[in-house]
Amino acid sequence: MAIDYSGQPLLKVENLKQHFKVSNTYTVKAVEGVSFEIYPGETYGLVGESGSGKSTIGRSVIRLYDPTSGSITFDGTDITKKLTRADKKKLRTEMQMIFQDPMSSLNPRKKVEDIIGEGLDIHHTYENRAQRDRLIKDILAKVGLAPEHASRYPHQFSGGQRQRVGIARALIMNPKLIIADECISALDVSIQAQVVNLMKDIQQETGAAYLFIAHDLSMVKYISDRIGVLHLGHLLETGTTEEIFSNPIHPYTKSLLSAIPEPNPIVEKNRVAESYDYKTSGIDYNQGFNHHVGGSHYVKCTDQEFAKWA
């Protein structure tokens, strides 16, 4: 499906800051001035190591946290301020989340049909019991589970199947945006491929946009249209998948790309991964601002750095 980049973005994050006050003297600046846009039907991949703030961004976007400053516009509505009842309803139905660990994100005491149907129950989106059952059966079929799975409990499923339940739960509200927070990291390689294929199929069918948060760059490359590279709360580099992978500018992006082990023994044993250490690199992220590389490719750095790297 072609993505329309000329229209209104579905999600617009501008200069988002998310700080957590730990004590009177110490504040964790998890996200420092991040801006990006997601268009309808697009997949935006956020990558970075743990502690880079990628999950925090996901959680701020769905308003599990109150952003410190900046603005988040979802489908034309500003969702940074105090939410009205109507805004909340819109947000809780049209934006959904898939979590990392399918075992701990599914209530072990509920049947799959009740886990999936919980959103329907809360928002009263069905007329009678039969319709609810039909909706649940449809969604189960869509994610590749059988109708008889509805009356089972999460522990009766394998990891891949559980993640399918998590996806079904997100899909049942017909969301416009799905935030997938490391949703395949806990799965086996062959199962990862199945889940990623499923997510791609669903996107084709429903036109939902994804915010795909992960640290596995090879999968991110595979699923994303555009990528943002995050480190220590700063969005260092963003662009289409092609641009980032064929022409990485920032040394951190380069080190991230070179750290991926390839299934090629001779190459792997000879290759030395590029290392990057923020402390010794002499780069100060706070000094940087966005430089345009070409197309939709931007790098956050100072003028001198840009001249040196590009």
Binding site: V189, Q192, A193, S218, L257, P263
Partner: peptide, 9 residues
């Protein structure tokens, strides 16, 4: 199958 399922860059 295992080798094919892993996306290389």
């Amino acid at each position: 199958g295992l080798l094919s399922a892993m996306p290389d860059l």
